[in-house]
Each structure stands twice: as structure tokens, then as C-alpha cells.
Computed example of a mutant assay.
Amino acid sequence: MNKLKLILILIVVFCTANFGFAQVGINTTTPLSTLDINGNLSVKTITLTGSSSATLINDGVYISVNPQATDQEFQLPSPITYPGRVYMIRNINNTITAKLTTAAANFFFKGLTSGGVNSIYMYDNHYRTLLIVSDGSNWTVFEY
């Protein structure tokens, strides 16, 4: 009976240890990364219309902001709370500036290690579309 218990324990240990290094493939039989997708990827898209107080950005990946008044505020969550989170944000209003802020920390434009800012103004010909990534401490900003 003890040998049977030992064998069962070893099987469970080996099976669960193997899952820790698993790779998932979608439309591929030989995934090369933790998640390997051979095909298209769709992400959640939402449109946020500004309001009288700061409009919180807490859902979606591709976010269209539509300010209704100049410098209307759209606020990202804390990058500390959501390390690795990615947002693509676009001001879809052609005439009104959107103000992008964060609940904590700063925005750093790609390649900068100092000179972080606590808000970004998005308007027609400047910062129209931004890719923003949390590094666990701050938001890193890529302009498109």
C-alpha cells in the first residue's frame, strides 16, 4: 500500500510540475512562447465620453476618448496596481483637447528615465494616439 501511495504522489508531483512550464498554442501544435497565436488577435475596444469629473479608464485595451469640453480629464489607474497593463488611447474628437492623467506615478516618454509628467494633453496634431504600458512603477508612453 505504501508503494502505491508513493507512486501516486510521484505522478501528481511530476504532472503538476510540468504544468508550470506549459506553453499554450492557438492554431499551432508547437507553441514557441507561453502564449503563441497563429492568427489574428482581437482586443476589447471601448469609447469613453467625457463627463464633468475625471472619466476613469478601467476597462478595454483600445480606448477612444471623446472629450466634450477643453482639457476634459481621462484618468488611468495606478501603474503600480497593474504592472504590464497596456492601453492604446486615441482622442477621436478633432477639435477638443483631452487631458490624460494617472491615479499615481508619472508618464515617461519612450527612452526617458527622468522628466516624467503627471498629465498629457492629447489634441489633433499632437499626441493623437498613444500606446501606454505600465512598468509596475510608472507609465511608459509611445507616440504614434
Rank of each mutant, 00 (worst) to 15 (best):
S42P: 00
I7S: 12
G60M: 02
P67L: 08
S64Y: 10
T29M: 03
A54Q: 09
V12W: 04
V141G: 07
Q23F: 08
L100E: 01
A98K: 02
K3A: 13
F142L: 14
N118E: 12
A105N: 10
T47V: 11
D36E: 10
T70L: 09
N125S: 12
F74Y: 06
K44P: 02
V61C: 07
G50I: 05
K5A: 11
F14L: 15
T81Y: 01
N27M: 08
S51R: 13
L4H: 11
T47Q: 15
S51P: 06
E143K: 11
D71I: 09
F74T: 06
P79Q: 04
F14Q: 14
L10Q: 10
K99P: 03
L6A: 13
G25Y: 03
P31W: 12
L56N: 12
T55K: 11
T95I: 06
I92P: 03
G116R: 02
F19Q: 14
I92E: 08
W139V: 06
T101G: 05
Q23L: 07
G115L: 10
T95S: 12
N38I: 04
R90S: 14
K44A: 10
Y82K: 02
D135A: 05
V117R: 02
K110V: 10
I57M: 04
N106T: 15
G60E: 01
T16Q: 03
G84K: 06
T30W: 00
E143T: 14
T95N: 11
V12Y: 01
G39N: 03
T30A: 02
V24G: 03
I46R: 10
H126K: 14
K44S: 13
S114W: 00
F19Y: 11
W139R: 00
I26N: 04
I120T: 03
D36Q: 03
L130M: 02
